[in-house]
Simulated assay, not measured.
Amino acid sequence: MIKVLLAEDVHMIRGALAALLNLEPDIEVVAEVAAGDEILPAALRTRPDVAVIDIDLPRKDGLAAAGEIHHRVPACRTLILTSLGKPGTLRRALSASVSGFLLKDAPADELANAVRGVAAGRRVVDGDLAVAAWGGSECPLTNREVEVLRMAADGKDPTDIATSLSLSLGTVRNYLTTSVSKLQGRNRLDAIRIAREAGWL
């Protein structure tokens, strides 16, 4: 039996996904959570084989949570389920050591097959997205620049970001200025828009 942890913040979607997976004779949903910061505690408690994680979750990004699982519960593989079908998003997912990446509009039977594939140790990636990623452009930002810009996109001001990341205020401002320049944005909001559209945030 493949034990699954399901992380999705929209209650109706989470319930539908859990119902679909529980219909499979070899899959059992052992935990359901609605926020990113609930994923690791649930994984430590239930020890699932696969965590199916929405990329855009409140309180903690799904990819950040997947990275935590990779380090703290290495036997649990992660499958990102998202509506953000952009090449940059796939690259972020692969750099976070996730095992699979599936779009939410994929046929229902593909989810169960993706869970089985990931549980068996295979990397499962949506075919169309993989082709797009092959030819897509690389993110020009460093990992730290992406992290700072993502926090700014979440509404944190430079002082909050500096405190959260144990950086000086000047360093945070430099990261934001450099990000705007690298993305050729008019300002910080424009840089956030450009990065989101490319799937880099």
Rank of each mutant, 00 (worst) to 15 (best):
L165A: 10
A195N: 04
R196W: 08
G185L: 12
I194Y: 01
T163S: 13
A162K: 09
S168R: 07
N187D: 13
I194K: 02
L189G: 06
L167M: 14
G170A: 12
T159D: 03
R188K: 08
R196M: 04
L183G: 06
T159P: 00
A191M: 01
S166P: 02
T178E: 12
R193P: 13
L176C: 14
S166N: 12
I192F: 08
L183C: 07
L189C: 03
V172P: 06
L167H: 05
R193Y: 14
R186T: 02
I192W: 06
R173W: 15
R186N: 03
R193Q: 14
L183Y: 05
S168E: 05
A195W: 04
G170M: 09
D160E: 07
S164D: 13
L183R: 05
V172K: 11
T171N: 11
N174C: 10
D160G: 01
R193A: 10
Q184A: 14
I192M: 09
D190R: 00
V172E: 04
I194E: 05
V180F: 02
R173H: 15
R193W: 13
I194D: 03
I194F: 03
I161H: 01
Y175M: 08
I192H: 11
T177L: 14
S181F: 07
G185E: 05
G170D: 11
I161K: 00
S166T: 08
L169N: 14
R173L: 15
R186D: 01
V172N: 09
D160W: 00
S168N: 09
T178N: 07
I194N: 03
R186G: 00
T163Y: 10
R196E: 11
T177V: 13
R196C: 05
L165F: 12
R193K: 14
D190K: 01
R173Q: 15
S168M: 04
A191K: 01
L165P: 04
A162F: 08
S181L: 09
S166D: 12
I194H: 01
I192K: 09
S179R: 04
Y175W: 10
V172S: 11
L183K: 04
D160Q: 03
N187W: 06
T159C: 02
Q184I: 11
D160A: 02
N187M: 08
Y175C: 11
R193N: 13
K182F: 00
R188V: 05
R186K: 03
I192P: 11
A191F: 00
A162S: 12
